[in-house]
Design a binder for these strands. Structure first.
Lengths: 181, 181
DNA sequence: AAGCGTCACAAACAAGTGTTTTGTACGATC
DNA sequence: GATCGTACAAAACACTTGTTTGTGACGCTT
């Protein structure tokens, strides 16, 4: 494996294990088995490397989510999401930090924006009834992504008190437009 | 104002302006007009100070959200949330980073967990029809917080393609339980 | 007035930081 | 076969980092 690729792999691992804020150039070098100086050689700076690693990480993350939803169509999307979260917790934690860093990284922000858009689109294909109008189906896709990310953010902080899959479905059933929602 | 309070204020400002990852002890000292050494004196370490600042920041953030929703009951909660986001963008960005840091900071995580729980509760009081059963109302509160946080995370990344208030209400109207949601 | 604890300040500290330099090995090119 | 550009490695670099030290001022009690 080329040094360049090793560095990105190592950087992604550091993002998960130490987080963006506490990852040093030497951490990455150690984690990837590469030389410290190759960071500057291949990427110009540690920061450029981390940005590239974060972009790749989001792609990985999207793929994983896609696979999990596609390979076995879940009975409940929310339930499946919670399972995924428990299974790959560090990935999601790193993901949150990446979201925050995107504010000051246009490239990264663009990548995240695209990932979100395709997520909305694919969710609408999988979950919205085909009989509905196109616009409505896309709206449902958007709603699902909104619920998924919101669910993740709560389960990350407090799995016990965060809404369960049943809670969400019950609320969705009960809610009537006009009551502020 | 006491040096200790100045430090926390300065730290909170740094969290917004520079982000957790790029805030140094000297940044905080400069922003608060305090002396560098007082960080160690009053808090033991820069990290302890930042944790305390993040906890206070979440409290502030919760208060701001509460006020915004209470003082004028909004026609659409989602619309109001989006307006708040545009108005106080740095606050929300910092908030995301705080969420990520919570993973390794039990104190902070506890504070966030409590804030989420009260948010769910208060949302259920404001938005769920009083006629509904208690459990259902709480479920609706949880649903609303889920939607709010999910909405924030999308608008932060791409305000143009993120779901609008209308999109969400349309989707909520159209969605039927049994279709995966 | 003397002693004491609290607090703020400037300066210094050692450790860690990202980056650069220097050198070498290896192929491809002419 | 000499030359050149690429890729990696060790060491050094200059700088920033969080923390500590030493000093003095202020308020309080005795």
């Amino acid at each position: 494996m080329k040094e360049r690729d090793k560095l990105i792999e190592g950087a992604k691992r550091c993002l998960q294990e130490r987080g963006y804020a506490h990852t040093t150039a030497r951490d990455i070098a150690r984690a990837s088995g590469a030389n410290l100086a190759s960071i500057g050689y291949h990427f110009g700076s540690k920061d450029a490397l981390l940005v590239e690693a974060m972009i790749e990480a989001t792609a990985d993350w999207a793929d994983k989510l896609r696979q999990a939803l596609v390979e076995d169509v879940p009975e409940s999307v929310w339930q499946r999401a919670i399972e995924l979260l428990d299974l790959h917790r560090p990935v999601f934690v790193a993901g949150i930090e990446v979201f925050a860093q995107a504010e000051r990284r246009p490239q990264l922000r663009q990548a995240l924006a695209d990932a979100q858009e395709t997520a909305r689109l694919e969710l609408s294909h999988w979950l919205a009834e085909a009989a509905l109008p196109q616009a409505t189906r896309r709206a449902i896709g958007a709603l699902c992504l909104t619920l998924l990310t919101g669910l993740v953010l709560q389960h990350l902080i407090d799995p016990d008190r965060a809404p369960t899959a049943e809670t969400l479905t019950e609320a969705l059933r009960a809610v009537r437009v006009g009551a502020g929602g």
